[in-house]
């Protein structure tokens, strides 16, 4: 299987771990990734303007279509943005005409076939739980983990079609395959606070602090994310010492899955520093 890999803006510089671990997991599962000259998905521009994010997304889809490829992204904000853009592009003819004009100025067109997949929905629906189960070579100890779902993939369901927005389960299902014990968490589907990190730092960190507190209460030892922005938000603890992380470590889903697929830990992180306890019986 061959897919265009949409990394988004933050992964190549700020989240190299996600890039590494995502690629190695895809390699393990026999998925070939193609990197194309994509631009931003458009999500950050949604605050200022309605047209820019739509143009940005559709342009990326057109670039993927040129190669005849569907697209996969490990970021939920990018994923949600692509769905959002497709919705408005198809609903608003005036907008479509304007976007098509701008695409034509760069010899691009989009005919609407390109499918966008998020890492989690791709693994669940395209690869299949059974196949992943078979490939798990190193079952992890049953440490308690909570999952952070990520808003922009989950809602609005009518546009993203990701999973049941009130009681989603695909993240838990996938994570359980690795052997860890996924525990219920009341804040699992609530926002991480990252979208207002720049504009309203205090409030953003207040939301984050509550995340750590409630996760601890739920009995978790680890938090697992599958979104660039969620992970960046949780990693704020590394540069902001006002936050109490309640001794919880946040990991990327691809790092946990990668370890269960038998990938050596140093191939899942640039620094090679992963919380070893998660992967060993103690």
């Amino acid at each position: 299987m061959k897919l265009a890999y949409f990394s988004g803006c933050k992964i190549p510089f700020y989240m190299k771990d996600y890039d590494l671990s995502f690629k190695v997991v895809m390699q393990q599962l026999g998925v070939e990734l193609v990197e194309l000259p994509f631009n931003c998905c458009g999500y950050p521009a949604r605050n200022e303007n309605f047209e820019i994010p739509i143009l940005s997304s559709i342009k990326n889809l057109a670039i993927a279509q040129q190669q005849g490829l569907d697209m996969i992204t490990p970021c939920k904000c990018c994923f949600g943005q692509f769905k959002h853009a497709q919705f408005w592009y198809k609903t608003n003819p005036e907008l479509k005409a304007k976007v098509d004009d701008l695409l034509a100025s760069e010899n691009l067109t989009w005919e609407g076939q390109t499918q966008v997949k998020h890492l989690l929905s791709f693994l669940t629906h395209d690869i299949g739980l059974e196949r992943i189960q078979k490939q798990i070579s190193k079952k992890l100890p049953p440490k308690k983990v909570v999952v952070q779902y990520g808003c922009h993939a989950l809602r609005p369901f009518s546009i993203t079609g990701f999973d049941n927005p009130f009681a989603p389960k695909i993240f838990e299902q996938l994570l359980s395959l690795t052997g860890v014990q996924v525990v219920d968490w009341s804040k699992s589907t609530e926002c991480c606070g990252n979208p207002i990190l720049n504009d309203n730092l205090d409030l953003s960190l207040k939301i984050l602090q509550n995340k750590f507190n409630t996760a601890k209460k739920a009995g978790a030892e680890y938090i697992c994310t599958a979104c660039t922005h969620c992970q960046m938000q949780y990693e704020m603890v590394k540069s902001d010492n006002t936050i109490n992380d309640q001794n919880l470590t946040t990991l990327l889903f691809t790092q946990i899955l990668g370890a269960a697929l038998g990938v050596p830990l140093q191939k899942l992180s640039e620094s090679g520093q992963l919380p070893i306890n998660l992967f060993q019986e103690n």
């Binding site: 808003c151 809602r155 926002c191 979208p195």
Partner: peptide, 20 residues
């Protein structure tokens, strides 16, 4: 200006208003 754009309001609106 503080909205997180998490779409919780829109998803839960019984009248299907695109609040976010």
């Amino acid at each position: 200006w503080s909205c997180l754009t998490c779409y919780a309001c829109q998803e839960n609106c019984p009248q299907e208003i695109q609040v976010t």
